[in-house]
Design a protein around this nucleic acid. Structure first.
Lengths: 135, 135
DNA sequence: GACTATGTAACAATAGTTGTTACATATGAT
DNA sequence: ATCATATGTAACAACTATTGTTACATAGTC
């Protein structure tokens, strides 16, 4: 969803867009969008102003934003899958496996992000445009 | 959790282990383990027998099982994040972006799996053993 | 100062996962 | 054969996370 919103912002080429408009595009509620925009602001991806005739716009050109940044901004609080584990220390495996798995998954995450880095937001826009035009 | 269970199985070197024992190790309920074992069976990773004195064991040696297989077996039904989207077709971006993002995320997934492929279950065991011994 | 749009809180609705109990069924042991 | 054991599976409660909704204070424009 984050990518969707940013894509719309990119589409609007620097114009400020309101959360209400974005919500219409993604087909959801303006508040959801505003919550998302807050995290994107924290990641310095968008620039939001209050007041009449305002809204949000990209902070950088679409060519200088890659998907890994967006991914990190959005998923930062979701470290894969650590659902309230209570590792049983009595088990010889349970005691030490946790940190090993964390290490391995972190590496895998990095690999995923490296792949996402290859694609910029501008690439996405172009692909979407091409795909739409083809229809 | 799947990795944890398989690690215990590997630790037991081919002996059959009951779901009750595994549940104790992971500190959860035997039914949870059995549900997990069903999916691991489908992926041909474990071999489970019913009856007295039975249980589950690895289907292959730990050196021949890599983490990507486990990941795929477990996450196969979870295609990243597609939460009940109703892409608004009225929006020019919304209409076509979906399949583009799917394509990109699929590539990123592959990158992640390629990284996981580098680690075998045996590697995990050894790392855990070393890490435990070091303490 | 009126209007507009964001920031934020509170809360309901929904979905997904985990945990629990219960029971039928298949397998192995005696 | 009979019995004990362990899985397969269903039904349901508990918990968590996400999404959606309403409401309102606040900041910036005109």
């Amino acid at each position: 969803m984050a990518v969707h919103v940013l894509a719309v912002l990119a589409y609007k080429e620097g114009d400020r867009v309101t959360s209400a408009f974005l919500a219409g595009s993604v087909n959801t509620n303006p508040v959801i969008i505003r919550r998302l925009l807050l995290t994107l602001q924290r990641a310095k991806l968008v620039d939001t102003c209050k007041g009449a005739g305002s809204g949000s716009r990209l902070n950088r050109s679409p060519g200088r934003i890659n998907l890994a940044e967006i991914y990190r901004a959005v998923e930062e609080a979701e470290p894969f899958a650590t659902p309230a584990r209570k590792p049983n220390t009595a088990c010889p495996v349970g005691h030490c496996i946790r940190k090993e798995l964390d290490r391995i998954f972190e590496s895998a995450q990095k690999a995923l992000e490296r792949d996402l880095e290859k694609t910029s937001l501008a690439d996405v826009i172009n692909a979407v445009k091409a795909s739409c035009a083809a229809k």
